[in-house]
């Protein structure tokens, strides 16, 4: 995902803000990292450039 996507993404659970933590990037592109709900504390992983915003009850991992 591109970092600019942060302008629109919000926590699927309560639509509150997310915080981006980056482990690996390629310019504007975030390859690995996570999005953390500033209110819910929920962690949404970014894997291979694709953010996983499935709520925790829908994740198979």
């Amino acid at each position: 995902m591109k970092e600019s996507l942060m302008d629109i993404l919000c926590d699927p659970l309560d639509k509150s803000e997310l915080e981006l933590e980056v482990d690996e990037r390629d310019g504007e592109e975030i390859i690995e990292g996570r999005l953390v709900g500033t209110v819910t504390g929920e962690v949404y992983p970014i894997e291979d450039g694709i953010p996983n915003l499935l709520p925790p009850d829908m994740r198979e991992e």
């Binding site: 995902m1 591109k2 996507l5 629109i8 993404l9 919000c10 926590d11 699927p12 659970l13 639509k15 997310l18 694709i50 953010p51 996983n52 915003l53 499935l54 709520p55 829908m58």
Partner: peptide
């Protein structure tokens, strides 16, 4: 294009975007 995984019943976007 941005691809992402998500639940169609709980979208990670603000109103009216």
């Amino acid at each position: 294009i941005e691809f992402m995984r998500g639940d169609a019943a709980r979208l990670p976007f603000p109103d009216d975007h």
